[in-house]
């Protein structure tokens, strides 16, 4: 229970960084932290006490795998989510570089002021 709550705390900190900070790179860092907390939460939900990785080794019985393995489904979904996060991060950073090239700053409030 405590671990679940700590991942929620991590999520809230990322959300705070996303909402309250003015620097765009800080906002991106907030999104990255939110991603980490969600991935950690999904893997924690699928963990089994004394669990082994869901891989059949040589000399291991099929029954042993079914009884002791951790949940393979969230692992497969999180694996795709991590790589998607990398692609989306690259897209966000390229938008930031374009903004920096145009306005010479990363500060959101200055960019807003320069617009009008």
């Amino acid at each position: 229970m405590t671990l679940y709550f700590l991942t929620m705390v991590l999520f809230v900190m990322g959300l705070y960084c996303l909402v309250a900070k003015k620097n765009i790179i800080k906002k991106i860092i907030g999104i990255v932290i939110i991603e980490y907390s969600i991935n950690l939460f999904l893997i924690l939900v699928g963990w089994r006490k004394g669990g082994i990785a869901p891989i059949l080794m040589k000399g291991m019985d099929q029954k042993e795998l079914v009884e002791h393995s951790v949940d393979p489904l969230p692992q497969a979904l999180v694996l795709t989510s991590i790589v998607i996060g990398l692609g989306v991060l690259a897209l966000m950073v390229s938008i930031c570089l374009r903004l920096y090239e145009k306005y010479k700053t990363f500060d959101m409030s200055k960019i807003n002021r320069l617009k009008g």
Partner: peptide, 10 residues
């Protein structure tokens, strides 16, 4: 074994 297309590609 552990791994796959995503990890190896990266």
């Amino acid at each position: 074994t552990p791994g796959g297309g995503f990890a190896g590609g990266v």
